[in-house]
Simulated scan of single mutants.
Amino acid sequence: MKEFKHENILHKRHFDLQFSIRFEVVDDVNFYSPFHWHNHIEILYVLEGKIDFTVEQRKYLLTDGDMIIINSELIHSSKLCGHARYILLQVPLSAFEGVYDEIENVLLKEKPESGEAEKLFSYLSLMLKSVDDQRQENKIKFISLLYDFFYQLLTSYKVEQKKAGTLSYYGINRISPVMAYVEKEFRNKISLSDVAEILNVTPEHMCRLFKKYTDMTFNEYLMSLRISAFYQMLQNTNQKISVILEECGITNYKVFIREFKKTFGKTPEVIRSEMQGS
């Protein structure tokens, strides 16, 4: 069965490596990334602004100079609080094949302290300079800095070892077909019976499994996908709000607005009005 990868990592092939990474400075406003997971280690360093970040049930408000390290196979989401600039590095576990084969069993410190984040940022800053400089020798410099950065993480920020076959890893792979199906079909009406059939269990058991392994209900996950799609369309199209609601599979307007306001603090009408006035 195909393993689900909810977030499609944008491959930034700066050099012809045997693996693909995403490494860039992101400048955006009010971007919302719903709950997802991937087989990458993700590092985010805030240059400017505020970001609400959730890793499983742990919540963080990241501000200037803060860093977060998301270990692979952990469900997480993020929301920019207005305008924010940040460095984003996503490296697949395959980057360590034959170099550090135990990487799959490692947990890195999730929220470095201020001084620690500043030290790690210095590596990211040098890596950015190497990327910007297209001289051939800087390919070697970049790769050297990348692995040196992870050497620092693995020697100073490793908090514990994951046990092979941990509950989290098993659970994510257990329900990944359901998440893949919902990601594809969330704009349509989704029956719990149809989703449960994917796992060959009852609807009630499917809901229990989903809650157990994701720390959220099935309906919360479905709503997060619809909110994200709705918000992107609200910003990028001139369609009527009622049309966007329909295209995103939203039928219960009151419930949706309540959850939308929890996420963004405002109604869609207010957000669109502010966009048109800017």
Rank of each mutant, 00 (worst) to 15 (best):
K139L: 04
D66M: 03
V99G: 00
K129V: 00
M275S: 06
F150T: 04
H76F: 05
A164T: 10
K162Y: 03
H36T: 14
I244W: 01
L47K: 13
E104V: 04
F19D: 11
A84H: 03
G115E: 08
K79T: 14
Y253R: 15
Y45G: 15
V25T: 15
L80H: 06
N188T: 03
I143N: 00
H11G: 11
E97R: 11
F256E: 07
N236V: 00
K184M: 13
E269R: 09
V29G: 00
A95W: 01
L192N: 13
L62F: 00
D194C: 03
I140R: 14
L153F: 11
S122A: 15
K254V: 12
Y231V: 02
K119P: 00
E269I: 09
I140A: 13
S77L: 04
I21L: 15
K211I: 06
I241T: 14
D52A: 06
K189Q: 06
Q235K: 13
I227S: 00
M1Y: 11
K266T: 04
H38G: 06
S130F: 05
D27K: 15
R272M: 04
S273K: 09
N173R: 15
D27I: 01
K158I: 02
P268Q: 03
G82T: 04
L47W: 03
I51F: 08
Y123P: 07
I143R: 02
K50W: 00
S168K: 07
Q18Y: 07
L88E: 12
K129T: 00
K59Y: 10
W37Q: 02
R258G: 05
L234Q: 09
Q161H: 10
G115L: 01
H11V: 02
L154Y: 10
R174I: 05
D66R: 01
Y253Q: 12
K261Q: 09
V182E: 05
E56V: 15
I250V: 10
E3G: 02
L88G: 09
M223L: 14
Y86T: 00
S78I: 04
Q18K: 13
S122T: 15
D66K: 01
N173D: 05
N219D: 15
K2N: 12
F218L: 15
E185H: 13
S156T: 03
E3I: 14
E48W: 02
F96M: 03
N39Q: 13
H76S: 03
T202I: 07
Q161P: 01
L245Q: 01
L44S: 09
R187N: 09
S77R: 11
L108H: 01
M216K: 14
L192C: 04
Y231Q: 10
S144Q: 05
T155A: 08
H14Q: 07
E197M: 09
K50N: 09
A164N: 05
H83V: 05
S122V: 12
F15V: 12
Y181R: 14
D133E: 10
D64G: 10
H76I: 04
D64E: 15
M179W: 06
F149H: 08
G65F: 01
V46H: 07
Y86E: 01
K211L: 12
R208I: 02
N138C: 09
K189M: 02
E204C: 01
L153E: 03
V26T: 10
F149W: 04
I198E: 01
R13Y: 08
Y157R: 10
S168V: 11
L128P: 06
F4D: 09
K139V: 08
N39T: 14
K109A: 13
A180E: 12
I69R: 08
E118W: 02
T155M: 10
